[in-house]
Write a protein that binds this DNA or RNA. Structure first.
Lengths: 251, 251
DNA sequence: ATGGCCGTTGCACAGGATGCAACGATGACT
DNA sequence: AGTCATCGTTGCATCCTGTGCAACGGCCAT
């Protein structure tokens, strides 16, 4: 709603595609060079944009810092982390925590088996929303109309032969997942990788996050992975208990 | 230089500290509520800000996406990555790539020994700039006045007894590093961890990035790690060659 | 040297951002 | 239940500020 800010912010995704010089920015914004210059200067002062030696602009370091701080201030994540680590120690596989936010599902935490250090790999990367087990839980809990609207709007890339092909199949899958309270992705994203996932709920019963355990076929078969389901659900429930007990998201 | 954009962008670090409602944002910006509302709306449209159920605002998902894309478009990183992987395969230790940008040193790539997958752990987190081997190389290459200015401005936390204690010692260390063209951190950040690092230079001979190999004492002693120095330098030089077209002797 | 390209600056104009005041919704307290 | 306080939201008049223009200057290649 604010033209100036709108223009300035439009520069960011533009630069995300790669460095650009003043002229290119001005052209793609449809504004005069001097205008683009002032916008870029302002972005620069805030560290969101960086000017490299060849004078071209690219995204700046502050962006990383902001994203980092943002993810650390998510209280679900804060509460869930120790549980993820504990789960990882028990089963040894990769553990993810994900949330839904305006048409996107993103990982906000991940624990690798060997190195139980925080790592935010793939944070911000669009998750394969039509196939990921966590996405099914998060989208399945949306109110009916929104769920349908989102499903219709999505693309359904066939990562593998077992990927979900279209909105109708996706909505059926969401209904199932919603019903049973857990989800799987059996080779729907990468042929050899399976996931099982369970929801974390807020005090109002709505799903606020989803956690999953992923493992490649070569380590455990899908059947073996499914034996972990009770453990995963117990962990998710433990997070739910701690999260909805302390923090109350009023609606 | 643009007041509106300036105000809008000031909201981001503010929200990075934690969620805030409209009134708080308006107050901390020193503007009217309606103004803050319009700014927040614009930020929201671009996905940089998210409105949670309790109507409070926090940083949005697009921020992660931008940070992610930004790091992937750094061409040094693109070129260096295969070399890092190769180095990792030869020595087995953790390999980092870092750049300097406006008073901060940040890791832009990392290869873990067992899992040679990309992971951006600690991206955006302020690196221990006074002790890290890569920081010494990056800061040591700044022009004299700026180097001094930065050194004076820094804090010198004593992570361990071997941390660099003050600006004078730091500047001496930088001079040494600059001279010899490589750097170490022997237990200066964490008692049991040693690093060795070498610079990647651009076509103009300036250091554009630095790479390091890190290993805990329990795996290899500092002396053993130092035997890898020629290998590390060769790798850095190879990256330099590919990145700039030629190899440049230390200046 | 010369011309073209690009970033930068100062300025006049008007377009858009600002703050005000009033409305409506929600929740707390009596 | 009723009243008040609080907070987000909207429309509008004012004038601040963002805008495009034109001109300057540095840089590189011809």
């Amino acid at each position: 709603m604010s033209q100036t800010v709108d223009r300035a912010l439009s520069i960011l995704p533009l630069l995300a595609q790669g460095p650009a010089d003043l002229g290119q920015v001005a052209e793609r914004l449809g504004v005069h060079k001097s205008t683009a210059l002032r916008l870029l200067r302002t972005l620069h002062e805030h560290g969101l944009v960086y000017r490299q030696q060849d004078q071209r602009y690219r995204l700046g370091a502050r962006l990383f810092a902001l994203a980092q701080e943002a993810v650390e201030n998510l209280d679900v994540r804060e509460i869930a982390h120790p549980h993820l680590v504990a789960l990882n120690e028990q089963c040894g596989h990769t553990v993810h925590l994900a949330v839904y936010e305006e048409n996107e599902v993103l990982y906000i935490d991940k624990v690798e088996s060997r190195y139980p250090v925080r790592m935010y790999s793939r944070v911000g990367k669009p998750v394969a929303i039509t196939v990921a087990a966590v996405a099914k839980l998060l989208l399945g809990d949306l109110p009916e109309p929104e769920r349908r609207a989102v499903a219709e709007r999505l693309d359904y890339p066939m990562y593998t032969s077992r990927s979900i092909p279209n909105a109708a199949a996706f909505l059926r899958e969401l209904a199932t997942v919603r019903e049973q309270g857990w989800a799987t992705d059996l080779g729907g994203h990468e042929e050899s990788i399976n996931c099982i996932a369970a929801p974390v709920r807020g005090a109002d019963g709505l799903v606020v996050a989803a956690m999953s355990v992923s493992a490649p076929n070569v380590v455990v078969t899908a059947e073996e992975l499914l034996t972990l389901l009770p453990l995963v659900r117990r962990t998710a429930d433990a997070i739910t208990r701690e999260y909805s007990g302390t923090t109350h998201p009023p609606r």
